[in-house]
């Protein structure tokens, strides 16, 4: 690992941590930057979990918005039942997304290539339409939360509280996926991407490795869903829309697939464009769209690959 790729994640986490501190210190950065940064952190968790299966494992899921929405809907459903305890909500969300990934992953892994892209998309579309049919939770209109989740009686009411929790979750996700990638499991996952037959002939159950990685990724993504629901205090089927899956994929690829911290860069870029530039001009896609095309044509390893000499 080069020096730069060790320094970049540290710099990223440091700058994300600095934003609310600078604000408390009275710097004129306004309320907008922490808001944007908070959403960057949450989407970075989701994108990083996708990067683990897509970048490391080569499993190109076009339906990663599904576990995000499942996490968010777990919040909504428990909220309606009057349950706001984080020690119940978060495990419930992770369990639901994990079971979803176990069942759909087992079917999806029978296919490969473009069919894998499309079958994962199909499962996400099912979640999208299922969410729209939840009449008790607002149906297509979505559901506004009564209250945010709490932990040991500590309410995540202020923006600062949720920001800190999100950042801790992002850091934990990064440590988890880094450790996993470096472990025997991660090496098998990565090797299966490069040469499946060879890994199989060594006696490894590639299917089990890939399915496990999909379940882990979905469970982490569900945490992002819980945070997203709490940040917006609102849940709607749009969380599972295919455009959301596409945008998570854009974050991963733009940031640099397989690098993990690239997901943070990708999430930052996408959120800055969508919500930052989106406030300046409604025509932001005219800048963002061509940028995507140019980045594919000229930046083969994403932003995280810049300066590594292999462009």
């Amino acid at each position: 690992m080069s020096r730069a790729s060790r320094m970049v994640p540290i710099a990223l986490f440091a700058s994300l941590a600095a934003i609310p501190i600078l604000r408390e210190a009275g710097l004129p950065i306004g309320g907008f930057l922490p808001l944007i940064a908070g959403r960057i952190i949450i989407f970075a968790i989701a994108a990083m979990s996708l990067d683990f299966i897509l970048g490391v494992g080569g499993l190109a899921s076009f339906g990663h918005a599904a576990p995000l929405a499942i996490g968010a809907y777990a919040v909504a459903i428990l909220d309606a039942a009057g349950i706001h305890d984080a020690t119940i909500v978060i495990p419930a969300a992770m369990l639901a997304a994990g079971i979803f990934a176990l069942v759909t992953g087992a079917i999806a892994l029978r296919t490969s290539g473009i069919n894998f892209l499309m079958i994962t998309l199909a499962f996400a579309q099912m979640v999208y339409f299922a969410a729209g049919s939840l009449a008790d939770y607002g149906g297509d209109d979505g559901y506004s939360l009564d209250a945010r989740i709490m932990w040991a009686g500590w309410k995540l009411s202020g923006r600062g509280g949720l920001y800190a929790v999100s950042l801790v979750c992002l850091f934990a996700a990064w440590l988890l996926f880094r450790t996993l990638t470096a472990s025997r499991f991660g090496r098998l996952l990565s090797a299966a991407r490069q040469n499946r037959v060879r890994v199989q002939s060594m006696g490894v159950d590639v299917f089990a490795v890939q399915l496990t990685s999909m379940v882990i990724a979905a469970m982490v993504c569900a945490v992002a869903g819980v945070l997203l629901a709490n940040e917006a205090e609102f849940v709607s089927p749009a969380y599972a829309a295919w455009g959301r899956s596409g945008s998570l994929m854009v974050m991963v690829l733009l940031g640099g697939a397989g690098s993990l911290h690239g997901a943070i860069l990708g999430a930052a870029l996408v959120v800055l464009f969508e919500e930052g530039l989106g406030r300046v001009t409604p025509h932001w896609p005219l800048i963002f769209g061509p940028l995507l095309v140019l980045s594919v044509l000229f930046l083969r390893r994403g932003i995280a690959g810049i300066g590594r000499g292999d462009g």
């Binding site: 076009f62 963002f288 995507l292």
Partner: peptide, 11 residues
């Protein structure tokens, strides 16, 4: 395939 998806998504 992923590069193609990303670029055509941009289009």
């Amino acid at each position: 395939e992923l590069d193609q998806v990303l670029a055509t998504f941009g289009i």
